[in-house]
Computed example of a mutant assay.
Amino acid sequence: MPDSGMPLSLWAQMVRLGFESQVVIGMRMAGMMGLAAHAPNENMRMITEKMDAAQESLQASVRSVTRGDSVDKVMSAALSPYSKRTGANSRRLSKRR
């Protein structure tokens, strides 16, 4: 049950990110094992996207903190770059099937 101190929207964002991450991991693993279509650059893309998302996440959280946002808004800002990428990856990888 969500902590009453954290908005439901943040919980929803975290759940969606967790779900989409698992979908992307599954599709990429299937591609690496030859069970699904897999672009030749997918493994490198996976690494560079993580580095880019980490940098964007740090920048977004710092901007949010310097604006004086609440903790839940800072957390949401930090999660947004990851959410954006996992959603896009899920859509992109599912089209390959």
Rank of each mutant, 00 (worst) to 15 (best):
R97G: 12
A30W: 03
G31S: 06
A88E: 15
S57V: 04
F19R: 12
D52G: 07
R63I: 02
E49L: 04
R91Y: 08
M14C: 03
M33K: 11
D52S: 09
S9K: 13
E49W: 02
P81Y: 03
R63H: 04
M75W: 11
D52E: 14
R91P: 01
R91M: 15
Q22N: 05
R45F: 04
S57T: 04
T48M: 14
V74G: 03
A88C: 05
G5Q: 12
R97S: 14
M27G: 01
E56F: 02
Q55Y: 09
E49K: 05
M46A: 04
A60F: 08
I25T: 08
S9T: 14
P81Q: 09
V74F: 00
L79K: 00
M32G: 08
L10G: 04
K95H: 13
A53D: 08
L93W: 03
G31W: 10
R28L: 14
I47K: 05
M46T: 14
L35F: 08
H38C: 12
P2Y: 06
A60P: 04
Q59C: 01
N89T: 01
S94L: 11
T66I: 02
A78C: 12
M6H: 08
L93S: 09
M29R: 14
N89D: 13
V71R: 15
I25R: 15
K50P: 01
S90Q: 12
M51T: 09
F19V: 14
V62T: 02
K73L: 15
